[in-house]
Structures are given as structure tokens and as C-alpha cells.
């Protein structure tokens, strides 16, 4: 897969390094020559120096044949323009734009940007998860609101502790998808035993959350 990354800051650099590690073809467009030189020393000959909002620079970077164009500069106006150019002028496969200011999300959406990544929103959600008292925490809510991926730490007071998955009275429409057992990932089957202290990931509708909480993480008796 060919991925064109515009913006060689921290996000662009780590994204590029990760993709190169997975054997993808990568180009990073970076405007600042010194930064580009630094990155070149770190991850190899994949840098193109130039203003990535310019159509001529995007063309030289092979925007039209890119499977993914990731606009990850620190400037939302630049990211919006790059995403618009990639999608509508060059017809690139898929475009992703970084949102530096989450308040720009409605505009990005109205402008038809397909994929949006907001590091500040993600960070805010992670911190909220850490400080929240809720025992059933939402990891990912699907856009239509019908289901979410949630996590719960299995309490020793739960009636489900030390029982095989098939014997646990799961609330309707909820599905256990993953068990984190002392840092190991387990894909559950009906015979898998869940133990107190396990972190459980489930797909469940929002209305099932109270039932999940009383089943898996009840108040201490």
C-alpha cells in the first residue's frame, strides 16, 4: 500500500515509522528542510521537502496513486485543504485529516473529509476514562448510538467470577469479545473461564450498561 503523509511532526514521523515497519511504501512531505533532514536520518529516504498544500508538491509526491493520504500537519487549514485536494483534485484512495482543534470537526465533516483523527479529543477521552468513577467504561461508541465497545474489570464479588463464559447470564444483545488476563489477550470461547481481576471487553447497547455493571462489577457486599 502507498501512504502519503503530509506533515513530518511527531504524528507524521511515528505514523511513517509504523507503516514502514509494516512494509508499506511511504512518502512524508515536510516543509522545514532541517526537520526533513532530521527525519531522513531517522527513518530513511522517504522525505520530500516542500509545502504540502501546493498541488505541484502533492503531484510530485504521487498523490494520485496514493491509497491513503494522511494530512497530519499542526495546521487545520492546511489539513483541510490537503484532504480536499487529495480527494477531489487527485482522486486519491482515502483521505485522513488530523484535527488539531476539535471545534473544527463540524466544518471538516461538512467539507466531506472522510477520516478525522483528533489527538486532543482522544487524549481527553482517555483522561476522562481514567478519572471517571463508572465501572463500565465506553471505549468506542458507534455513530448511530446503537452499540458501543465497553470495558469492565471483573470484580471478585461478581457472580460471574470463576465461571465459564457460557454459564454467565449476559444481558441481551451484549457480546464478550476479548479478555485481558494479567496483560495477556484471550479470545473467549464458551469454555473460557473468566476470573476476578480480568478486564473484559464487550460489545453492548447503552441500555445494557447498568445490567453489565451489576453482573460484573457489583458494589462490595
Amino acid at each position: 500500500m502507498y501512504v502519503l503523509i503530509v506533515g513530518g511532526g511527531k504524528v507524521g514521523f511515528h505514523l511513517g515509522r509504523m507503516l514502514l515497519g509494516k512494509q508499506h511504501e511511504v512518502t512524508i512531505v515536510e516543509q522545514r528542510p532541517a526537520r526533513a533532514q532530521l527525519l531522513q536520518g531517522l527513518i530513511g529516504d522517504v522525505l520530500l521537502v516542500g509545502d504540502g498544500t501546493l498541488p505541484s508538491v502533492l503531484e510530485a509526491a504521487g498523490c494520485a496513486r496514493a491509497d491513503i493520504v494522511a494530512a497530519v500537519t499542526g495546521d487545520d487549514a492546511a489539513n483541510l485543504l490537503i484532504a480536499a485536494l487529495a480527494a477531489r483534485h487527485f482522486g486519491a484512495g482515502r483521505t485522513i485529516a488530523r484535527l488539531n482543534d476539535p471545534r473544527n470537526e463540524p466544518l471538516f465533516r461538512l467539507c466531506g473529509v472522510e477520516g478525522m483523527v483528533s489527538s486532543s479529543s482522544i487524549l481527553a477521552e482517555l483522561i476522562e476514562r481514567e478519572v471517571t468513577a463508572a465501572r463500565v467504561r465506553t471505549l468506542l461508541a458507534f455513530p448511530n448510538g446503537g452499540a458501543a465497545i465497553v470495558e469492565v474489570d471483573l470484580s471478585p464479588h461478581s457472580t460471574a467470577a470463576d465461571r465459564p463464559v457460557r454459564e454467565v447470564p449476559w444481558p441481551p444483545d451484549s457480546l464478550l469479545i476479548l479478555i485481558l488476563h494479567r496483560g495477556d489477550v484471550r479470545i473467549p470461547s464458551g469454555d473460557t473461564r473468566i476470573e476476578a481481576g480480568d478486564r473484559l471487553l464487550l460489545v453492548a447497547p447503552p441500555e445494557a450498561e447498568p445490567a453489565l455493571q451489576s453482573l460484573l462489577a457489583p458494589e462490595a457486599p
Partner: peptide, 15 residues
């Protein structure tokens, strides 16, 4: 700045 101009124009039109 052309990118800024683009974004302002889209905001005025779309929002």
C-alpha cells in the same frame, strides 16, 4: 495564506 483562505471560504459557505 491560501490554506487559511480556503478554510474561511468553506466555513462561510458550509456553516
Amino acid at each position: 495564506v491560501d490554506a487559511t483562505n480556503f478554510m474561511v471560504a468553506r466555513a462561510a459557505t458550509e456553516l
